[in-house]
Nucleic acid binder design. Structure first.
Lengths: 146, 146
DNA sequence: TTGGTTGCAAAGTCTTTGCAGACAT
DNA sequence: ATGTCTGCAAAGACTTTGCAACCAA
């Protein structure tokens, strides 16, 4: 959750962090693996997973555990929501900041102590909207671009 | 997404639906499997998965694909949010209804067409709060009750 | 008979982990 | 030396699927 012992910024870790920060998409571990391997062909997927967990634990990146899809990672740590395209799976950032009054709205509706929330918008991205107006029947594409 | 061909309400399907509706918890497929097996010892886990998918596709139950946890199912189809206990994983229903103005709030913040959202509150359930005031160090229990 | 349904086992997908060797301090 | 980190392969957790037998219309 919070920063721990000073972490050894090894070559692998540095490259993984760089590659994640370089993209504005929200890649899965294996997409990152593919990119990193271009620079470090011998790196293993296990190292990628371990490093991503580690960086997230240090607060240097964020895990996106989006409902019903596989885990993705986000090089931007400033709190912000995401919107996911229901057709292609692409995830985009919304501007930083929380929805005002959201948790307060629910405080008196539950006997739990409310300490946080997850919110994800769902929609159609510009590319898929365009495909649709062009009459392309893309069906539901696998959530696996970039 | 919506109701399809009239489905054969076989014994297996009826029992699975009954068992799910009988509980107010939000069980995983294998919890349902365990319960159903008490009445139909020869049923397979594969059938349980297939049936739950089918019932969800028919709109008779709901899938809960909660961020970062395994899939659960909900016998209540009326739209409502959930709150999940971060300590024990228990999921409770919030009263039916959507947060007013939520999607509208984001419409001008994205170039996606907004068509929906997922929202999950996070918190501490009454049982875990009690454990804590009693000084029990339960750590993070696996999200696997009921 | 025809097409849907089931149990079973196997396969699949995504992620974590044990281990021995490599590396850094 | 000592403890950390890595690649590799295997294991794990959860879910889906191929298939032959089965069942209902």
């Amino acid at each position: 959750m919070s920063a721990q012992s000073p972490l050894h910024m090894t070559e692998q870790r540095r490259v993984i962090l760089e590659e994640l920060r370089k993209v504005r998409s929200h890649p899965t571990a294996d997409k990152i693996y593919t990119r990193v391997r271009r620079r470090m062909p011998r790196i293993s997927l296990g190292t990628v997973y371990r490093t991503l967990d580690l960086l997230a634990a240090q607060g240097m990146i964020r895990k996106i555990e989006s409902a019903g899809t596989r885990r993705r990672f986000d090089g931007t740590v400033e709190p912000h929501y995401h919107i996911r395209c229901l057709e292609c799976g692409r995830i985009a950032d919304l501007p930083p900041g929380e929805m005002p009054g959201l948790e307060a709205h629910f405080r008196n509706q539950t006997d739990y102590d409310v300490v946080g929330h997850t919110l994800e918008l769902l929609g159609t991205c510009p590319a898929c909207r365009k495909d649709r107006t062009e009459g392309k029947d893309v069906g539901v594409r696998p959530a696996s671009e970039q």
